[in-house]
Amino acid sequence: QTQEFDNEEEARKAEKELRKENRRVTVTQENGRWRVTWD
């Protein structure tokens, strides 16, 4: 699953929550947008 964010702060917040659920999370930056991908 993927979700896009406008800034790193929001993306990192989402990453932190997903990691609490023991998910594999990848955060990438593309064209000024932050993308959080998880399984």
Rank of each mutant, 00 (worst) to 15 (best):
A11W: 02
V25K: 00
E17W: 07
Q29K: 10
G32K: 03
E30T: 09
R24K: 11
R19A: 10
A14M: 14
V27G: 00
Q3E: 09
T26D: 05
K13E: 12
K13V: 14
T37I: 12
K16R: 13
N31S: 09
A14T: 08
D6S: 07
N22P: 03
W38Y: 12
A14L: 15
K16H: 12
E15F: 06
Q1K: 11
L18Q: 03
E21T: 13
N22Q: 07
E9K: 08
N7D: 09
T37F: 11
K16Q: 13
F5P: 00
E4I: 15
V36P: 05
R12C: 06
R35F: 15
R33L: 08
R12M: 08
R24P: 07
E15I: 07
K20I: 09
R33N: 07
E4V: 14
A14Q: 07
T37H: 14
Q1F: 15
R12Q: 04
K13D: 12
Q29N: 13
E9Q: 09
E21F: 10
E15R: 02
E8L: 05
R24N: 15
L18F: 06
K13T: 11
E4T: 12
R19C: 09
E17Q: 13
R23N: 13
N31D: 10
K16E: 12
A11V: 03
R33V: 11
V25M: 02
L18M: 08
A11G: 01
E4G: 03
N22A: 08
A11I: 01
W34N: 00
Q3R: 13
D6N: 07
N7P: 00
D39G: 08
E4Y: 15
R24S: 14
R35A: 06
E9H: 09
E9V: 09
E9R: 08
E17A: 13
A11T: 01
V25N: 01
D39W: 14
T26C: 07
R33P: 00
T28I: 11
Q3P: 02
K20M: 12
Q3F: 14
T37V: 11
D39M: 06
E8P: 03
E15M: 08
T2C: 15
N31H: 06
Q1G: 15
Q1R: 11
E15P: 00
T37R: 10
N7V: 06
N7F: 05
D6F: 07
L18R: 04
E30M: 12
W38Q: 06
R33T: 07
E30Y: 07
R24Y: 14
T2H: 10
N7L: 06
N22H: 13
V27I: 09
T37D: 14
R12Y: 07
Q3G: 03
T2R: 06
